[in-house]
Design a protein around this nucleic acid. Structure first.
Lengths: 136, 136
DNA sequence: TATAAAAGGACTAAAACGGTCCTAAAGGTG
DNA sequence: CACCTTTAGGACCGTTTTAGTCCTTTTATA
């Protein structure tokens, strides 16, 4: 249970590759995909969605490509994972207030909240910078 | 991300119901399903699989039904969840040794291991007994 | 023997996953 | 301006997982 999808895996690999580049360098999607060993068109979708929320910047046309949207130490693993997989949410109950009618009566509720808290804490504590320097 | 499936949700509800019964009482699947508000045939499958691994005991024929396989304080939430959803595994990497060729080079690996550890710790720390007394 | 359960197996609709492909738009270059 | 390069967007698609249902068989009781 709780498995990261390929999409998430690919997203992380791609972003780490970008973080390992000399600052300011623009990388082609083809280059990133090859280096990260990820299907190119699939990665393109992922990075396009990242561009929308500012995690990466994209440039079209000749000389275009992708860069990180911020410095690597300002991007957390949590951000990347949530951007692609949605919020860390071990149970639907935890969504909005009232999203679970059993809310008051269900004793499992606080357990899921704790799990959520721990996972968020770990993923928030890791930056892409750290991952980039540790990897490879 | 990391969402429990309905199957997992139903399994927990069903087992909590059993834990709330007077010790030794045998409950019909129809009774459990109704009380836990779970589709009966679906819950039947779940409890049947639990019977195989001893989390519950089942009895056929008239007067039959289900009971807990052990006392509620000896069943952890982790056990129930893993029985139904498989092992807590935030990333495939963590499976067997060598299941991930990037093993040595990938800096994300230890993060997933930490996530796994925290989640397991929380779920292992909660017994069905606790949930049963807290619920309702 | 009839009846009351659970057990097992086959089946299914719908959603999510893991992509591909094609066209359009935007930005450089001669 | 025309052409080329590169990302953006949308449609599509096969496979797997989810979330069940239904029918038959086995086991136990009365």
């Amino acid at each position: 249970m709780m498995e990261l999808t390929r999409k998430g895996e690919y997203a992380i690999r791609g972003i780490i590759y970008l973080a390992q580049l000399p600052p300011g360098k623009v990388a082609l999607i083809s280059e990133i995909a090859e280096a990260a060993e990820v299907p190119q068109t699939f990665l393109a979708k992922i990075l396009q969605s990242f561009a929308k929320i500012g995690i990466v910047k994209s440039f079209r046309g000749a000389g275009g490509g992708f860069t990180l949207g911020r410095s690597a130490e300002q991007i957390t693993l949590r951000e990347v994972v949530e951007a692609v997989e949605g919020p860390i949410l071990p149970n639907r109950c935890l969504l909005g207030a009232g999203s679970c009618e059993r809310d008051g009566t269900c004793g499992v509720h606080p357990v899921w909240r704790e799990v959520q808290g721990k996972v968020v804490e770990v993923l928030d504590g890791v930056t892409i910078k750290e991952l980039a320097t540790r990897t490879k």
